[in-house]
Design a protein around this nucleic acid. Structure first.
Lengths: 210, 210
DNA sequence: GATGTTTTGTAACAAATGTTACTAAACATT
DNA sequence: AATGTTTAGTAACATTTGTTACAAAACATC
């Protein structure tokens, strides 16, 4: 654990903070598709992502879903931070997109560290900023792009997160993430295939052009 | 200034912090429609909103706009905070929706205060959380609602911010905020009028049902 | 290989949103 | 009063997105 901590956070946090994190944090491994945070959960701490990728999804009262963004190694979940420190509920769902490793930091220390460590303050503020910017990008996508562009962007983003040029997924799964219907996804994927941007297989989409 | 500061922030900040804010902050009055922050600005500080309402708008590279949310008294602009503390650029535009009063806090003190004042830490974290939640609400609106519902929500939200039951605005202005066309807005407004939810006048929309 | 299940393809249609074009009303200016 | 400008109303049509229905292909299981 210390090794991975050093390798992704060694240049972010000062030594004393790394020591505290090692002492107080709990390491956890997540299987693919494992649920990390569910809607309405009260967080007892915040996760630092050491390895893997986490999908963050928003769900409204009618159970309708939409993908917000992905977390990568080095990231933390700003929404959990919010929930942990204020004892409030979390408005999102977090699912491991692939096998991942996290360190769970207990909420009791979050505020102490803000006082003690400048690097922690920077990290927290940066995390919030990154997340605000991701949200804005999501809003741009929803407000300004048509479904075909959104789909292509979705495929590229997801491939990038997975560090693959092929995605193992179904049209239905994409439809859930994008909050549209499977038929629409199939139609637009076929269109992208005709434009030679992707190649379609069963349970797999190959991205030809980034 | 001290009076207004006390009345909106007296229960939020401790006395020493209020003293510092009074000493180091600069008071500013904004006319209606005055531009407070523009896209790409580097912020020299963050505004605390004492009075009035500020409209926060997102613009993409093609100059297309969409309303993100409103700030009310007691709020601050999380996006400016981000920009100020990291010396980065601001990704939004902020315009006074009505005559407003703000205190501008110099960016040099933002980090110091995080160490010195627990109330400041809480305020900053709360502000980020509120903003993240607003962004999620905006995303919900874009992803899950049809244009007619979005329009009705827009009217109610804006009226609430203005503390009025009538809005002085044009169909074109609404279209800009919602990133649609004037014709669509006129059509849907007429529909809302038929449903007795609003009453239309020239340059004014009366909201009959909240 | 027969059977059932999951995934994909596609047509036909419906609904929502966007666009163009024109008109009329309200208001302002001279 | 005549004129121009801004704002709003509406029809007709185009495009985008969503829905329903069905068939075929790929795969899994027996």
């Amino acid at each position: 654990m210390r090794e991975k901590l050093e390798s992704y956070f060694g240049f972010v946090f000062e030594k004393e903070l790394l020591d505290e994190i090692e002492l107080l944090g709990t390491y956890k491994k997540l299987r693919e598709n494992e649920l990390l945070v569910d809607l309405g959960d009260k967080m007892k701490g915040v996760p630092l992502l050491l390895e893997g990728a986490i999908k963050i999804v928003r769900e409204d009262k009618n159970g309708e879903e939409i993908l917000l963004y992905f977390l990568e190694r080095g990231d933390t979940c700003a929404s959990s931070f919010a929930s942990a420190i204020s004892n409030g509920k979390c408005g999102i769902r977090a699912i491991a997109e692939k096998e991942s490793e996290i360190i769970f930091l207990p909420k009791e220390k979050l505020d102490d560290w803000l006082v003690k460590y400048k690097t922690w303050r920077n990290f927290v503020i940066d995390s919030y900023n990154i997340r605000l910017n991701e949200m804005m990008e999501t809003i741009d996508t929803l407000a300004f792009m048509r479904m075909d562009e959104r789909l292509y962007k979705y495929l590229r983003d997801r491939a990038q997160i997975m560090r693959e040029t092929s995605l193992n997924t179904t049209h239905q799964e994409i439809a859930y993430d994008m909050h549209t219907s499977r038929v629409v996804v199939s139609r637009l994927l076929k269109q992208l295939e005709n434009e030679k941007k992707v190649k379609l297989h069963r349970n797999r989409i190959e991205i030809l052009e980034f």
